[in-house]
Amino acid sequence: MGTDYQRAREELGRRLRELRVECPDGRLTGVQLAQRLGWQQSKVSKLENGRQTPTDEDLSAWARATGQPATFAELRARLKGFESHIRSWRRQLAAGHGPVQDAWNTLVANSRTMHAISNAAISGMLQTADYARYVFERHAALQNAPRDTEDAVRARMKRQEWLYRPGKKLNLLMHESVLSARICPPEVLAAQLDRLLGVVGMDTVCMGILPLDAPLRLSLGNSFTMLDERLVVVEDWHAELWLDDAETIALYRRVWDTFAESAVYGAEAQRVIARVRRSIRDDGS
Score class of each variant (00 low, 15 high):
residue 86 I to H: 07
residue 26 G to T: 09
residue 3 T to G: 07
residue 245 D to E: 05
residue 151 D to G: 15
residue 241 L to H: 05
residue 277 R to H: 15
residue 209 I to H: 00
residue 24 P to T: 03
residue 17 R to T: 00
residue 169 K to D: 04
residue 65 A to Y: 06
residue 38 G to L: 00
residue 219 S to I: 01
residue 181 A to S: 08
residue 148 D to T: 08
residue 130 D to V: 09
residue 81 G to A: 14
residue 235 E to T: 06
residue 81 G to W: 10
residue 109 A to S: 08
residue 184 C to Q: 13
residue 150 E to Y: 14
residue 140 A to D: 12
residue 59 L to H: 09
residue 54 P to L: 01
residue 115 H to D: 00
residue 69 P to L: 05
residue 90 R to V: 09
residue 218 L to G: 02
residue 43 K to A: 02
residue 42 S to W: 03
residue 111 S to P: 09
residue 257 D to M: 00
residue 80 K to Q: 15
residue 196 L to E: 08
residue 35 Q to A: 05
residue 19 L to N: 07
residue 268 E to C: 05
residue 236 D to N: 15
residue 184 C to Y: 10
residue 141 A to P: 08
residue 281 R to E: 12
residue 94 A to V: 12
residue 100 V to N: 10
residue 16 L to V: 12
residue 19 L to S: 06
residue 197 L to C: 13
residue 10 E to A: 03
residue 67 G to Q: 04
residue 224 F to G: 02
residue 284 G to A: 04
residue 219 S to K: 02
residue 80 K to D: 15
residue 157 M to R: 00
residue 3 T to I: 06
residue 169 K to I: 01
residue 72 F to T: 13
residue 65 A to K: 13
residue 96 G to M: 08
residue 215 P to I: 00
residue 182 R to S: 15
residue 22 E to K: 11
residue 46 K to F: 15
residue 151 D to P: 14
residue 18 E to L: 07
residue 52 Q to F: 03
residue 34 A to P: 15
residue 165 R to Y: 03
residue 281 R to S: 10
residue 221 G to F: 09
residue 268 E to N: 07
residue 75 L to R: 05
residue 11 E to W: 08
residue 222 N to H: 15
residue 123 S to F: 07
residue 106 T to G: 03
residue 272 V to Q: 00
